[in-house]
Design a protein around this nucleic acid. Structure first.
Lengths: 349, 349
DNA sequence: GTCAAATGTACCAGCGCTGTCAATAGAAAA
DNA sequence: TTTTCTATTGACAGCGCTGGTACATTTGAC
């Protein structure tokens, strides 16, 4: 059942396409057509063959398929090793696994240190692993030379939250709008002096989130005060440093919006060091809804970035683009505000 | 260089073993021997062939290798989807990637919901992906039926922190000793009423960490008080619930040791809700040193579980066991205490 | 009933590599 | 010098699947 007895009588040998063909009384080529979704197979025959496949418990051998069809059935997630937050990557890979589920494709991780010669080093990577497609996240997703090299090598890819127009397939969410939403939440609580610890320059996320911050202030008729924005780099330490600068002002802000959760944790740390209570003395918001935002006390108000949906869609569309090279897609998936206890009405000033 | 021009004159065709053989003036088989580290190739020839490989920038095609050698060059990490902490898994996979680096092997993740029929479902997984080896973490690493099934299927595996003797290759660290260390740290600060929120029953980690706690108390001549130990399940919520019970006692503990970081965060949350200051009113310790332990305020005293080293070793040894099926290894890698600000001298009682 | 399109079969090469086994060379033994 | 032996090396047949060509059969349109 579902396997041939091996000649030695020991161990199982999985069924081959030939066995399925024999079982269904057709040629191997026809089975192959069914397997690969080729259209010209009559519905009745198709069902019969599918039944045989199930009966024999047949699963095509990926290596054989790959060799014959010059494919690897591998989709690699390229991320920047030290920079990328591990929970972010983990969420992405889970979404990718979900998208690969039921397909012959396999998702693999590939950390890649961002550096000048990345576009060159990619050649070695491609030669070694021959992925059928790539999924890129920032900062790689914003590396124009890298994308160009991939185009030259004729490797399909999709990007996540890229700021480059060059990328034919990009998935993200409306970060600007989400940042504005979170500021509006603070405004609605009564905050007027709202500071921002921004992200690393070069990331789209830095600009979008900053712009959303400005949008909301403008809409509320509050003048933009450049001195209330300090530059961070998405790390905990930079968040703490940013908060230190902001809270040392003569008139410190009543709320700080950090461009990601790690930096928000840094802000919380600095407040803790100064004996400021959150949210009573200072409201804090993050961005991304990484696991830490629920583990920290008080819980962090943040925006849930729909990582799994994004990476799942990124994989689905890049697979589609293998069939249809002309395909192009810029998708924005819905996000969600997560209101937790780190934000509240400001104390009387 | 390093590729043939494609017949169409468009795109690159990577070098094949045949090209290397021609370049070095030997047969393809001899090149293959060099590639696979077969001993019977004369040193001078070997160097010449290696030079040709570099000159042509040759990288073997994994699909062809896999097909011919009946291998997939895939090593899967099997983990339990909802239970496993994502940062733990992420650390493990990073270690696995490191071990695979420079080998033809690829590490893939495979979430697998723990359930009664897991040992049966594994067959389908193996048929589909044909991994050459598996790395199992708890709870799968403690699933005797599963390991037995893998033995029957003749699939190599290594386990991480398994409590089963059945596993031929297991990597972990001395959790009992580490837990004792952390309790000794609390004792040295002057704590005497130390509580413990234990892990999920069935995990080795639950027993080892609890035993370490008891070891240290016994050594200090403190009688074991069962009522100071509450049962958790490694989740944040169970940590908070455990702390709630402990802190509601007439004489609450001055320190709480949670069996992992997530639960320690739950303890911190409960303290926060009650307005207890950490570490002044309550010292808290975690276990594992997940990223959150640095992000939370105050920083969490914990034990650094050397995840990357563990998973790296797990992969290296399971690969070795493919060559040498008789191989067996029970390794305990060194761990490290991380003293942070969540522990301090107890306030006067 | 005729013709074209749709559908299916048969067959074979070949993807790039490794396993098997035979062949060869060089060294040791006679 | 010849023989024997072992260490090296090579020839060849696939691994299981897909792509292509060539042809057979069915279907539906006219």
């Amino acid at each position: 059942m579902g396997h041939r007895e091996s000649p030695t009588g020991w161990g199982y040998m999985p069924a081959r396409i030939e066995d399925v063909a024999a079982h269904a009384g057709v040629s191997t080529k026809t089975v192959s057509r069914v397997l690969n979704g080729h259209p010209s197979v009559r519905a009745t025959l198709r069902t019969r063959i599918e039944a045989s496949i199930r009966a024999l418990n047949y699963v095509p051998n990926p290596a054989a398929r790959g060799l014959a069809g010059n494919r690897s059935y591998l989709i690699a997630l390229l991320y920047d090793n030290p920079t990328a937050s591990s929970s972010y990557i983990m969420e992405l890979i889970v979404g990718m696994l979900q998208a690969c589920n039921g397909t012959p494709y396999n998702a693999v991780l590939h950390p890649f240190h961002a550096a000048d010669d990345l576009a060159a080093r990619i050649d070695g990577f491609v030669a070694t692993h021959r992925p059928d497609a790539l999924v890129l996240v920032p900062p790689h997703a914003n590396n124009a030379k890298l994308l160009q090299r991939l185009d030259e090598l004729d490797i399909r890819y999709s990007t996540i939250s890229s700021k480059l127009r060059q990328s034919r397939i990009d998935i993200g969410f409306d970060e600007r709008r989400a940042a504005a939403d979170i500021i509006e939440h603070l405004l609605s609580l009564g905050h007027r002096r709202i500071a921002h610890v921004s992200g690393l320059k070069g990331h789209g996320a830095q600009v979008w989130r900053l712009n959303g911050y400005r949008d909301a202030l403008r809409k509320a008729g509050i003048e933009y005060d450049e001195s209330l924005v300090v530059e961070g780099d998405f790390t905990f330490a930079s968040g703490a440093a940013g908060a230190k600068a902001l809270l040392s002002r003569r008139r410190p802000p009543t709320a700080i919006f950090a461009a990601n959760d790690d930096m928000a944790c840094g802000v919380v740390r600095e407040a803790y060091e100064r004996g400021l209570a959150i949210p009573d003395d200072l409201s804090v918001c993050g961005f991304d809804d990484t696991p830490v935002s629920q583990l920290i006390s008080p819980g962090l108000t943040t925006v849930r970035q729909p990582c799994r949906e994004i990476s799942c869609l990124a994989v689905e569309s890049v697979l589609q683009s293998i069939r249809d090279p002309a395909m192009s897609l810029k998708a924005r998936v819905p996000y969600q505000m997560q209101l937790r206890a780190s934000t509240a009405k400001p104390a009387k000033p």
